[in-house]
Simulated scan of single mutants.
Amino acid sequence: MPELQAFQDAFVSALAERTATPIAAWLPEGEAEPAGLSIYRNTIAKGCVDALAANFPTVASLVGEDWFRAAAALFARQHPPRGAALLAYGEGFADWLARFPPAADLPYLPAMARLDRLWTTALFAPEAEPLAAEAFALDPEVLAGARATLHPSLAFAGFDSGLPGLWLAARQPDPAEMMLSPEPQGILIVRPADTVHSRVLDAAGLAFLTAARDDATLGEAITAAAQADPHADLASLFAALIADGAFSGLDLGDDR
């Protein structure tokens, strides 16, 4: 078994480093580069590119198939997968795009990749039953002192411009003319059941979720939302988050 493990590790290194040197000890005398090794490399490379295309569909749709697959092949060569499963492959792709010279004229592209990554993360997040509105039918003082547990699939982020709206528009089957709003926007992505849902999040909603994530009580989170936008309809904001399936637990503070 130790010998088999050593060979497997060396074989993986040979694929990643694109040289047969790590497996030289197992090669027949005089054979420097087995022909089959390139087949394995090409198969893995295609699998990585296909996985990136599946995990970053918005980026692919914005730049076109040829551009995307060429960039994805370079990323895969520099960042080979750590395991056989490629369902969530692409960690670091957004940061890589930010440093990729051909993407310099597309400054929105790394953000599109980060949003795609949030969507994929939500898709593969652990299952949890979202709380229904009835769970929050409590005495106002009790509710204000409670702490809500965010659903494990919930992802949210804020941006200095309307990148979330651009991302949502680009993901439509037949996107109309896409315009980038200069106004700040947030994004909410969650999978309370079988389907991932996404929507633009305003300043009040972003402030509420940030406070809840940081262990604030619901009363404190509502206060943060009001401070972020004094004109926000806080009751509607809270109801919308419940309808989104944003919460999976409620701590009433009995054990604190």
Rank of each mutant, 00 (worst) to 15 (best):
A14H: 07
L15Y: 06
A16H: 14
A16M: 11
A16N: 14
E17K: 04
A20P: 05
A20Y: 02
A20Q: 02
A24D: 14
A25I: 15
A25Y: 13
W26L: 05
E31Y: 10
E33L: 09
P34N: 08
L37N: 04
I39C: 07
N42E: 03
C48V: 10
A51K: 00
A54D: 07
N55V: 02
P57V: 01
V59L: 02
V63R: 06
E65I: 02
F68I: 11
R69P: 10
A70L: 12
A72Q: 02
A73G: 11
F75Y: 10
F75R: 04
H79T: 13
P81Q: 11
P81D: 11
A85W: 14
A94R: 00
D95W: 04
A98Q: 09
P101V: 01
P102T: 11
P102M: 07
A103T: 13
P107D: 03
P107L: 07
A113S: 02
D116H: 05
W119Y: 11
A125Q: 05
E129W: 07
P130C: 01
F136G: 03
L138F: 10
L138V: 08
L138D: 06
D139M: 10
E141H: 13
V142C: 14
A144P: 07
A144T: 01
L150D: 06
F156Q: 12
G158S: 05
F159Y: 09
S161I: 00
P164F: 00
G165S: 12
G165L: 06
L166F: 14
W167E: 00
R171G: 15
E177W: 08
L180Y: 04
G186H: 00
I187V: 10
V190Y: 06
P192H: 11
T195Y: 11
F208V: 08
A212D: 03
T217H: 01
L218D: 05
I222T: 14
A224E: 09
A225K: 06
H231G: 13
H231Q: 13
A232L: 04
D233W: 01
D233A: 04
D233I: 03
A235Q: 09
A235D: 11
A240M: 04
L241P: 00
A243N: 07
F247N: 01
G249Y: 01
D251L: 07
L252V: 08
L252I: 08
R256H: 14
